[in-house]
């Protein structure tokens, strides 16, 4: 993210390494879970996040979050659920994605950390499963109302990225009326570890994507962008030096400023070049 001093390049490399490890873990998970479909579901979620690295896909971050929640819900047969991310500055949980009839209405909804089940899980890092939640009308009322109903059973886990909790994954009501089992908790716990890395990977890609678009539009001047961000962008595009990427962005920006004919000509030339490179690589 521009202005952020964090070494994005190193973190991206770390995250790619983790993704590779995750693929190995998935193979191990398959042998631990009775449902053969579990492997494919996890693979889809993770490969989806890997695909989200593609520059110029502004919706990739949200898509990755949705994939994480939908995968978790599908694997454990949950009727509804929510993925919260922690807002460190305000110490709140933000509804990032929700499953359920009113999922669109709950976005940007905030829950104080420390309160309710999701808040407790975020504060303590302990996973909890609750049955008969409706016996307490105050129980997770916020989430229940937001998503459209009061849940009967809840399975809630923290999302750890290394030693930090970045969010909370909460599934509501198992399809068919059964309870979430300890085995479900273990499965979701293992999935949560993968999910947290997936989310972080998508977030970093989103940040790099945002920076690239800013450079192309001339909204960000290269000397204003931290070297770490440029390094990350160069790594993502497999370009060897920051000077090259700055020059490339500057050229595209200048061409676009010449007007529509120039912009179209540049696109035709670049498109032709890409087609030629694709054809060459396939021979």
């Amino acid at each position: 993210m521009p202005g952020n001093d964090v070494d994005l390049e190193k973190r991206l490399a770390d995250q790619r390494y983790v993704i590779e490890q995750q693929r190995t873990q998935i193979e191990q998970l398959l042998s631990q879970h009775e449902e053969n479909g579990f492997l494919n579901l996890l693979k889809q979620a993770l490969l989806g996040s890997a695909a989200a690295e593609v520059i110029g896909a502004p919706s990739s971050y949200e898509a990755a979050l949705e994939a994480v929640l939908e995968t978790a819900g599908e694997v454990l047969n949950a009727n509804a659920g929510a993925l919260f991310l922690i807002d460190d500055e305000n110490q709140e949980l933000i509804f990032a994605v929700a499953l359920g009839e009113k999922s669109e209405e709950v976005k940007e909804f905030r829950v104080p950390v420390g309160q309710g089940i999701a808040g407790y899980v975020a504060a303590t890092g302990q996973a909890i499963s609750i049955t008969d939640a409706e016996r307490d009308p105050r129980f997770d009322k916020t989430i229940g109302e937001a998503i459209g109903y009061t849940p009967n059973s809840i399975l809630c886990i923290p999302l750890f990225l290394n030693d930090q909790i970045i969010g909370v994954l909460e599934l509501l009501d198992k399809a068919g009326g059964g309870n979430f089992t300890p085995s479900d908790m273990e499965t979701l716990g293992r999935f949560g570890s993968l999910a947290a890395h997936t989310i972080e990977e998508a977030r970093l890609s989103h940040d790099v994507s945002h920076l690239f678009r800013q450079l192309l539009r001339g909204e960000a001047r290269p000397f204003e962008v931290p070297a770490s961000s440029l390094n990350a962008l160069s790594a993502t595009l497999a370009i060897e030096s920051n000077e090259d990427i700055i020059e490339l962005a500057a050229m595209v920006h200048k061409i676009c400023q010449q007007g529509e004919p120039s912009r179209k000509l540049a696109m035709d030339i670049l498109g032709g070049l890409l087609s030629y490179m694709d054809a060459k690589s396939n021979t």
């Binding site: 303590t124 302990q126 996973a127 909890i128 499963s129 609750i130 049955t131 008969d132 939640a133 016996r135 307490d136 105050r138 129980f139 309870n179 979430f180 089992t181 300890p182 908790m185």
Partner: peptide, 20 residues
């Protein structure tokens, strides 16, 4: 600690699972 009926808010009980 599995499917254990535990005390909760407002004098009520819930059935909960967790190492907690």
């Amino acid at each position: 600690g599995i499917d254990k009926e535990v005390a909760w808010l407002d004098g009520r009980y819930v059935t909960a699972t967790g190492n907690s």
